[in-house]
Nucleic acid binder design. Structure first.
Length: 376
RNA sequence: GGGAGUGCGCCGGAGUUGGAGAGCCGGGGCAGACUGUAAAUCUGUUGCUUCACGCUGAAUAGGUUCGAAUCCUAUCACUCCCA
């Protein structure tokens, strides 16, 4: 992987860059649609590249390991061939499931034992094992195995957990470096900063992670329920320590406003389930503000879903039609809404990039954050 | 025209056959939540009110009774049977 920093903003820490992988290039800042189980829920692969203009998507180690399973993915020749996505893929390591499935797992120094949410069977995930799994899935970017701590998290636990995540990173790197990609293209390991909401821990973690000198760095353990100002504070703190010349990935973030604020702090990559999950639940992000398309007020609004959208679907279908589809629980409702939200998120980061390059990012951002938060 | 049966809250169902219904389950309606996806999920609410009180309420109108959704009479509506 290569990262080229194109432009750095004068008035903020925002930057525009270009990542090059064996599966193509990624213009940063970028939003990466989440495709946990090898699919961005309710979205066709070809729509991801055409209407949404996604440049990279995610997969998840824990979920893909359970289903379809590594034997199938290996036989397929990796996830790219399995789901027919030809661009770059990033897989999360299962570190988030340590948090989200906390009632069905046990953490030890050696690793984490999960009780499958599907059939109750037990599965042991170690840093080494997780590297092997992600080699087999065949993602371009693979995440280090970490513990995503909850919020709030007491200091003592946060510190202990962070140090374990650091030791796990050591093991991830060692194992990763002595193994090879299975499918003939490069894979890049990304380490993850932890430390909850404690400044000293975050500083220590950021310095430790930077010292591993990997091609890109990630910030984890945020967007787990902490107030937004806290998220920005920690992100800022960590961005000041992580090297400028490498991509910074803020995991699990966030809302459109979160994206702009964190781009401003120096983040290059984002992923979040909000655009797809909220789409399925009827919440739309538009250039005018936020819409709950299920609300009765849209039943006879025949205006386009978003006339400024990059997506033809969002320009040509009316709010009333989408309102009808979502209310009826029609699959097409989830599809159109997901397509819309993702194309909006991709439009937003593309605009941000344009304005960083044009040199008026700060002004544009302060106008946008007001508009994006409006409830229509 | 005659006979039988059934009627409650937005809809359907359960339940109550003389002893305190604003009460249960679905659905629908009205809202809300969701941040590296156990989520096409979950939560609240759905007679009126000055909202922890109080009021009205079992098709409609009467009656019996200490007490009626329950028993009686009439009317209305619906379903079925006979002509």
């Amino acid at each position: 992987m290569q990262f080229e920093l194109k432009v750095t903003d004068d008035k903020s820490s925002a930057r525009a860059g270009l990542i090059t992988t064996d599966h193509g290039q990624i213009e940063t800042p970028i939003f990466m649609p989440v495709g946990t189980a090898g699919t961005v829920k309710a979205v066709h692969i070809h729509e991801l590249s055409t209407e949404i203009q996604a440049q990279i998507i995610l997969g998840n180690t824990y979920h893909l390991y359970l289903r379809p399973g590594l034997d199938v993915l290996e036989k397929a020749g990796g996830l790219h061939k399995f789901n027919n996505w030809s661009g770059p893929i990033l897989t999360d390591s299962g570190g988030y499931q340590v948090y989200s499935l906390s009632n069905r797992r046990k953490i030890k120094e050696e690793g984490v034992t999960f009780q499958s949410h599907i059939d109750g069977s037990k599965h042991h995930f170690t840093p080494e094992g997780v590297m092997d799994i992600q080699r087999k899935i065949g993602a371009d970017f693979i995440m280090a195995f970490d513990e995503c701590t909850p919020y709030p998290c007491d200091y003592k636990y946060a510190k202990r957990s962070m140090h374990m995540t650091h030791r796990w990173l050591e093991r991830c790197c060692t194992h990763f470096d002595k193994t090879e990609p299975l499918y003939g293209y490069e894979q890049t390991l990304i380490p993850i900063v932890q430390g909850s909401t404690y400044d000293d821990l975050r500083k220590e973690s950021a310095e430790t992670i930077a010292s591993f000198d990997r091609p890109a760095n990630a910030i984890g353990g945020l967007s787990v329920g902490e107030p937004a100002p806290e998220m920005y504070h920690v992100t800022n703190l960590v961005c000041e320590i992580l090297p400028k010349e490498k991509p910074r990935y803020l995991m699990g973030v966030g809302t459109p406003v979160n994206l702009l604020e964190c781009i401003s702090l120096g983040i290059d990559m984002f992923d979040c389930v909000l655009p797809t999950r909220n789409a399925r639940h009827g919440l739309l992000y538009t250039s005018e503000g936020i819409i709950n398309i299920k609300n009765a007020k849209w039943k006879d609004c025949f205006d386009p879903i978003d006339e400024n959208s990059n997506s033809r679907t969002s320009r040509e279908h009316s709010k009333a039609y989408l309102h009808h589809l979502v209310r009826c629980g029609e699959a097409l409702g989830a599809m159109i809404a997901s397509l819309h939200n993702l194309s909006f998120f991709l439009w937003l980061v593309k605009e941000a990039r344009k304005h960083i390059i044009a040199g008026d990012f700060a002004e544009w951002k302060s106008k946008m954050v007001v508009q994006l938060d409006k409830r229509l």
